[in-house]
Amino acid sequence: MSTRTLLLVEDNPQDELLTLRALRKANLNASIDVVRDGQQAVDYLFCTGEFSTRSTTLPDVVLLDINLPKLSGLDVLTRVRAEPHTKLLPVVMLTSSDDERDRLNSYGIGANSFVSKPLEFAEFMSSVGLLGTYWTRTNTPP
């Protein structure tokens, strides 16, 4: 079984630290790449810009924040769903918003899941851990 790759798009360094710690604690056998804004995420996924030299392998799952500098998470998702080879890429919206509209928009554009970042640390740990586990282990594409 090859190593799973997980792309975290997060502009808040503290959230990034907490998320990475939660994923680490969940004992995922996966490599995690982190980009910090929407543009970087797009470049990463389509191997453009600073990631033009990156191999074209896609991550197994993208954890995508919505509030991002440059391009928002929803913009990124729109681009991903627009390209045939990224169309089926699993994308989980991971956001501190529990706004109804964000949720509806996300599912409307084609997010696979929508997870509101809980405030309580324990809950956060458990949520992120479950996410990582599900998308890197259980939900293996055929």
Partner: peptide, 16 residues
């Protein structure tokens, strides 16, 4: 909901 939660989550998360 976004901007206040994030630092709060950080305070809370790192204390934990």
């Amino acid at each position: 909901s976004h901007d206040l939660r994030a630092p709060l989550r950080a305070m809370w998360g790192f204390c934990d």
